[in-house]
Design a binder for these strands. Structure first.
Ligand code: MN
Ligand code: MN
Ligand code: ZN
Ligand code: ZN
Lengths: 145, 145
DNA sequence: ATAGTTAATTAGAACCATTCTAATCTATTG
DNA sequence: CAATAGATTAGAATGGTTCTAATTAACTAT
């Protein structure tokens, strides 16, 4: 018990810190979801997936709260929403500048480091608007080896 | 009446030609939708929008047929599906190599010619897969002038 | 032209990810 | 320890999309 708490202490404290700095109350549910999301690196999860993981880890949390939390984390800059699949949103724990490979047949997203793609634009943004973000999606397909 | 038929003849024949070459029966509904889609250049429409236009043009067609037709046209290479908005698919009449500006606040899509964007890749596609298409989405935001 | 065959259309139901509601609970503050 | 603002929740509602199975229309062979 004690040993487990001690081990779990570091990521939990880190999660509390994160939540405090973005002005969200560190509730049991948000702390648990933050740990599931951020203890591994670079994840692309759907709300249903994360809800399933929470249940699997014996964390009692409603699907509504999972949705609320994912959106709050996104607004706070802790997550990024990736819209790539009609009718399903992915949430990306990698908020650094990067792009994606996407295998549509397998609904599989993987990262491309931002520095690995360079692009030269001619077109200005339409008059009266400003560029917010450039997103590059490389659609790939599995082939027999 | 006659004058109208004669004028409408050209695009209608063109639409029949298109459908025939992709192996789809030129039904009243598909011909009407093809005309609505292709008589103007570079459109980005949702199924509901196109259905509304058809109704406005006194074309009797069900929403199910609009969906069927959009997907068939997409499979046939006459349209391209653009997934950019969670829970809404756009169909693009421009099937040439090009990219998009997207104003999320106004759900407004506009084209960027393919030749206006050049990119230098370092990353290979993951092992056992091949690049199918590279999609660039430039997220823009309207600013006060 | 006609009949037979195949494909397309349709209304309405079903689906399903997501959002909403309003009641309950919890963290925070004084 | 109140009082209050904020968070969670079950379950209903939403809305774009897909499905179903019955009807209608296009095509093919005669
Ligand atoms: Mn969202
Ligand atoms: Mn689709
Ligand atoms: Zn990513
Ligand atoms: Zn386009």
């Amino acid at each position: 018990m004690i040993r487990r708490s001690l081990r779990a202490g570091a990521p939990l404290l880190q999660a509390m810190e994160q939540l405090k700095t973005v002005g969200l109350r560190p509730t049991r549910q948000r702390l648990a979801l933050a740990q599931l999301l951020f203890e591994r690196s670079s994840r692309h999860v759907t709300a249903e997936q994360l809800h399933g993981e929470a249940r699997g880890a014996a964390v009692r949390v409603s699907l509504a709260t999972v949705y609320n939390t994912l959106h709050q984390f996104t607004s706070a800059g802790l997550l990024r929403e990736v819209v790539i699949d009609p009718g399903r949103s992915y949430f990306d724990t990698n908020t650094s500048d990067h792009h994606h490979f996407y295998d549509q047949a397998h609904c599989a997203l993987s990262d491309i480091p931002g520095h690995a793609v360079s692009l030269a634009f001619l077109p200005q943004a339409p008059d009266g608007s400003v560029v917010e973000r450039v997103e590059v999606i490389v659609h790939i397909r599995k082939v027999p080896r």
